[in-house]
């Protein structure tokens, strides 16, 4: 038999698991998660496995590992963001992105827990925290996927507005997938209504967007680490849009 000849029958496609099946009913759900790499793989390929493991007694280790992954990924993406301006932004951008992400999640965590309880969910605070960390990991992992594209644009354009828009677009796509994980998680936590979760994701997105303005400049440069003037993010965006891109001064306070 010629070994180079392809087999007549292709390997079978793994069957998709019915999402309505309770967690732990499928044997794949019970596969242990041994480290951060397995955890990331489970988040991407087998979210049910991650959701099941988050309800087990050893979930704290998994959550801590995931949080570390989220912080590392956010820091790496921060390096790419900082590469636009270079210099001090190489460390300022990662610090601000990581800090902003963690603070935004912590600010929104109590409301998510209370909303989930109001929706009838049986989730414990630790489980809710695990779901939020899962959201962060999926978001930042996807941002790492976008990082080469973002880097190419960073090196080839001088427009802060264009870069800001690009990073926001990447973040929006990544957050959508993170949100989908969170939603799936709540569907398995006996939540009777998803309304509160929809309200929460709006709050979370608003907090994150405001955080980008509160911690500006992230893409451009400034003499100050934090801005002196407080602004609402929409007001800041309109101001940036009104500035002429050719002006070098527009590279500040971003």
């Amino acid at each position: 038999m010629n070994e180079s000849q392809p087999s007549a029958t292709p390997p079978p496609i793994p069957p998709t698991i019915n999402s309505a099946l309770p967690l732990g009913e499928h044997p794949d759900d019970r596969l242990p998660i041994t480290g951060p790499v397995t955890a990331v793989e489970a988040l991407l390929r087998q979210p049910r496995r991650m959701l099941f493991q988050l309800r087990q007694s050893g979930a704290a280790k998994i959550i801590a590992g995931l949080l570390l992954v989220a912080v590392l990924c956010a820091a790496v993406y921060g390096l790419v963001v900082g590469s636009f301006a270079g210099g001090a932004q190489y460390w300022i951008a990662p610090v601000k992105i990581v800090g902003g992400m963690v603070v935004a999640a912590l600010i929104c965590l109590p409301s998510l827990y209370i909303f989930s309880c109001l929706a009838g969910s049986q989730a414990r605070l630790a489980e809710v925290f695990g779901l939020v960390v899962g959201l962060l990991v999926l978001t930042t992992i996807l941002l790492i996927g976008f990082a080469p594209v973002a880097w190419v644009f960073s090196q080839s354009t001088n427009s802060i507005t264009a870069m800001g828009f690009l990073h926001l677009a990447f973040w929006a796509v990544a957050t959508f997938f993170g949100w989908r994980f969170l939603k799936n998680g709540f569907a398995h936590l006996s939540a009777q209504s998803m309304g509160a979760l929809y309200v929460w994701i709006c709050i979370f997105v608003l907090v994150c967007l405001q955080m980008t303005t509160a911690l500006r400049p992230i893409i451009g440069t400034s003499e100050d680490f934090f801005p002196k003037e407080k602004k609402f993010f929409l007001a800041h965006w309109f101001e940036v849009l009104e500035q002429r891109p050719a002006q070098p001064a527009s590279a500040t306070q971003r």
Partner: peptide, 8 residues
């Protein structure tokens, strides 16, 4: 609920 909204 109010306490949870306080950080926001």
């Amino acid at each position: 609920v109010l306490g949870a909204c306080a950080p926001l």
